[in-house]
Write a protein that binds this DNA or RNA. Structure first.
Length: 262
DNA sequence: ATGGCCTAGGATCTAGGA
């Protein structure tokens, strides 16, 4: 069984990439971010025609997440609010960034973490607030679902080996101390980096800037992640980054990351 | 040092991304 995460940077612009990739790869559950499409315009039929059921949580122009599953999902949760309540979440669900569901006996959460723009900005404060809320959300889910799989575009490279040139990135968005610590707080609830279960090397990335021929030069960041609770670490067989779609014409700036379970 | 590219929306530019 395979689960993948992929920030597609507009599903309507990338639909042929996504369907081609699904045809080439036996993925059971695909977690998409930055779909950038309202639910009424979601290209659901393209996935149904391939035997997948889409579960969608989108909005106009920005953000948006979706679960594309071969098997029916249960206990689908949209946003933080359905788990934590509106009083705690406040406006953090105005941007649609969270969808979770029970996939067999694994609860999968698909996230699009805020980018944060620049240190000290309002968006940076929002990112930290959002990560604090995520910690409570994950803690609440773990009570009911000890087999928890958290994946998506985290917009954070947790360690220097996850960045092509870490020397000058200490104050850079996606690498700064406060956001790394906020994510580490989430992981401290009992989650481990799926990719690092299998590989310790640097130089493995999931996002490359469109500019400056960054992909060709492998000037990238590893910011798309799968985080697994302890029971799932024992079941994981592999975690791989598929570079192929990033080489195609008009690609997303992110590429898929796949976890295989027994 | 700076910006280099891409998308959506609505329009020939701005906002946002990372």
């Amino acid at each position: 069984m395979k689960v993948a995460t992929w920030n597609v940077n507009s599903l309507r612009s990338r639909l042929l990439h996504v369907t081609r990739w699904l045809q080439d790869n036996p993925i059971d559950l695909l977690c998409l971010q930055e779909t950038k499409v309202v639910d009424g315009d979601f290209p659901a039929d393209a996935f149904r025609a391939m035997g997948y059921s889409p579960y969608i949580y989108g909005q106009k122009a920005y953000n948006g997440v979706a679960l594309i599953s071969r098997s029916p999902l249960q206990a689908v949760q949209y946003g933080f609010t359905s788990v934590l309540g509106a009083a705690r979440v406040g406006g953090l669900d105005d941007q649609r960034r969270v969808i979770g569901a029970l996939w067999g006996d694994i609860y999968v959460v698909n996230l699009y973490v805020p980018n944060g723009n620049a240190l000290g900005s309002d968006k940076y404060a929002y990112k930290l607030d959002w990560l604090n809320c995520l910690k409570e959300y994950v803690a609440a889910l773990l009570v009911d679902y000890p087999q928890l799989h958290l994946c998506g575009d985290f917009n954070i490279a947790l360690e220097d080996r996850d960045i092509y040139n870490p020397e000058d990135k200490a104050s850079h968005i996606m690498a700064s101390g406060p956001e790394r610590q906020a994510l580490q707080q989430v992981l401290s609830l009992g989650l481990r980096d799926g990719f690092r279960l299998f590989s310790q090397e640097g130089g493995h990335f999931t996002w490359w800037d469109y500019r400056a021929a960054s992909f060709r030069r492998n000037l990238g960041w590893r910011i798309d992640h799968h985080y697994l609770s302890a029971p799932l670490c024992d079941r994981a067989l592999a975690c791989t980054i598929d570079l192929e779609p990033r080489r195609w014409e008009k690609p997303s700036d992110h590429t898929p990351v796949v976890v295989e379970y027994s």
